[in-house]
Structure formats: structure tokens, C-alpha cells
């Protein structure tokens, strides 16, 4: 019954982009999520924490996040997600929007 909390790390081959200040994006609407990215010393890795009512898709979350981290060449960042049944496409879109927000 309780919320499903996933915590894992992703590491891309050549981490480059870093988030210099905390950034928040999104609203936890139905089928949507919010993202909080904060700078974190993690030896070039990205620390991920996902809080979601969804169970049974833990491996998919890891793949979606790993693909995002690889494509954005992200490192030394903590990503926290509060999810409310977002699809993988929405997850990727919101992560990119959050990163764009960090760059703005």
C-alpha cells in the first residue's frame, strides 16, 4: 500500500554537464510528475530517487533514467522524482525540461 520508493545510481561513459544550482520542474498531476535536480558529489554518477504509486516497473524506471543520463551526459547530480503514473515518454520529457530549466 505504501508508496514505492526506488533508489539507484546511473553513470554515463563521459559525464560532462553538471547542475550548478537546485532546479525544480513539473506538477504531480495525474499521469505527470515533478523533478528536483540538485548538485551532489557522487564520483561522476547520478543519484536517483523515485517515489511512485506504481509497482512492477522498477527495471523500466532504471532504463529510462539511464538512457536520459547517458544522452544528457549528466554527472554529480541528485535527481528526485515524485511520480503519479507518468508514462516513460512523459518521464523523459520532464527530465529534459528540468535540465533545460537548469541551463536557463
Amino acid at each position: 500500500m505504501a508508496l514505492n520508493t526506488l533508489e539507484f545510481e546511473c553513470k554515463c561513459a563521459a559525464p560532462a554537464a553538471a547542475v550548478t544550482a537546485p532546479v525544480h520542474f513539473g506538477v504531480v498531476g495525474s499521469g505527470d510528475l515533478e523533478v528536483l535536480m540538485t548538485p551532489a558529489k557522487a564520483g561522476g554518477a547520478v543519484k536517483v530517487k523515485v517515489v511512485t504509486p506504481v509497482t512492477g516497473f522498477d527495471a523500466l524506471w532504471q532504463r529510462v533514467l539511464a538512457a536520459f543520463v547517458e544522452s544528457a551526459k549528466l554527472g554529480d547530480v541528485a535527481i528526485e522524482i515524485n511520480d503519479n503514473n507518468a508514462t516513460p515518454a512523459v518521464v523523459t520529457l520532464r527530465l529534459r525540461q528540468a535540465l533545460a530549466e537548469a541551463a536557463a
Binding site: M1, A2, L3, P22, H24, V27, V28, E34, L36, T38, V51, T52, P53, E80, N82, D83, N84, N85
Partner: peptide
């Protein structure tokens, strides 16, 4: 008490409902 303060609802968490950092 913005998103960085992460003040989510403990009740929603117990019920397995999605939470938000600013509680809406």
C-alpha cells in the same frame, strides 16, 4: 517551504498516493 524543503504529506504516503514536494 518550497520544493527543496520536501514537505510532503505523510498521510498520502501511508495511503500509497502520489506526493508532491510542496503539497500542492
Amino acid at each position: 517551504a518550497g520544493p527543496l524543503d520536501r514537505r510532503t504529506s505523510p498521510h498520502l504516503e501511508t495511503l500509497g498516493e502520489a506526493v508532491e514536494f510542496d503539497d500542492g
